[in-house]
């Protein structure tokens, strides 16, 4: 962490000699669009992809985990999803989309990012719901709650810390990968990165990296805050007590429950 400022302030070949200058220098930038426009593009792509991921993965995982169904399929899906490189998906989708006249923006990029975000969200939600104390579910059933009520009122709130952690991982990965779209003809913050690397203008690379990192860390903090606000008080206290008992808060990261 201490190396970062030194790295970022290092001089480049020509043009602006440090990152601060780069931000004010309007002449030497790769992309003609203003910075905020590219920034907005990155944020918007990431937000849309994350939303789609959450809408797709969380309900499915909760449903599957509640009924203890499809464990084998879920594990396979998560593992294969992790193994598929984003570069591939982007390349193929962009080419397919261009050839069929769908254009570049934004669907190929969004789909690639969604595929990237699905596995961590799905795995964490599944593991979270699976890990809910069976006695809590039993008690709820004894009180006459239906399956839907058990899912909504018992399992999801109790699994919430893990679910949010999964969404956080997915979001960070999505934001981290979005700049890759620029290498496949897109725009966004990656455009600076691509141009900087090809012209060996490393100040530009560093400035772009800084902006992407700020976006990623900002999103992470935002989700931490949302997680804190959304988690019911009882669950929070339980987590707190566990930490007080000096057990690690976060369990092992496993490839969904193994079969």
């Amino acid at each position: 962490m201490t190396v970062a400022p030194a790295l970022l302030l290092a001089g480049g070949a020509e043009g602006p000699s440090n990152v601060v200058e780069w931000f004010t220098d309007l002449e030497n930038r790769a992309s003609e669009a203003p910075i905020w426009e590219n920034l907005w593009l990155t944020v918007w792509h990431s937000a849309l992809a994350t939303t789609i991921v959450v809408v797709l993965a969380v309900p499915t995982a909760v449903l599957l985990a509640h009924h203890r169904r499809g464990e084998l399929v879920a594990t396979w899906f998560v593992n294969i999803g992790r193994a598929i490189p984003t570069v591939t998906v982007l390349g193929l989708l962009v080419i397919a989309s261009l050839r069929n006249g769908f254009g570049l923006e934004p669907w190929p990029i969004i789909i690639a990012l969604v595929l990237l975000g699905l596995p961590p969200t799905f795995a964490n939600t599944y593991a979270g719901v699976r890990g809910v104390d069976p006695s809590a579910v039993g008690a709820a059933r004894a009180m006459g709650l239906t399956h839907g009520q058990i899912r909504r009122r018992i399992e999801v709130p109790l699994a919430l810390p893990l679910i949010i952690a999964g969404i956080r991982t997915a979001t960070v990965q999505i934001i981290a990968t979005e700049p890759l779209a620029a290498f496949f003809g897109g725009e966004g913050l990656g455009a600076y990165l691509r141009a900087g690397l090809s012209r060996r203008d490393f100040v530009e690379v560093q400035a772009a990296a800084l902006m992407v990192a700020v976006v990623a860390i900002g999103a992470e903090l935002l989700l931490l805050l949302i997680g804190r606000l959304v988690t019911p008080k009882g669950v929070r206290i339980a987590t707190h007590e566990r930490r007080a008992a000096r057990r690690p808060r976060e369990g092992p990261i496993t490839v969904a429950p193994s079969t």
Binding site: M1, L7, L8, A10, G12, V172, I175, A176, T177, P179, L180, G190, L193, G196, L197, F202, V205, Q206, A208, A209, L210, V212, A213, A216, I217, E220, P248, E250
Partner: peptide, 27 residues
């Protein structure tokens, strides 16, 4: 040291890969 270590590795994980490759490549 567990919390600071996980926080640090978590921070490393947050740095976007494309950006990190670029920045390290510049040095």
């Amino acid at each position: 040291t567990f919390t600071p270590i996980t926080a640090f590795t978590g921070f490393l994980y947050t740095i976007p890969s494309v950006a990190l490759f670029g920045v390290l490549r510049s040095r």
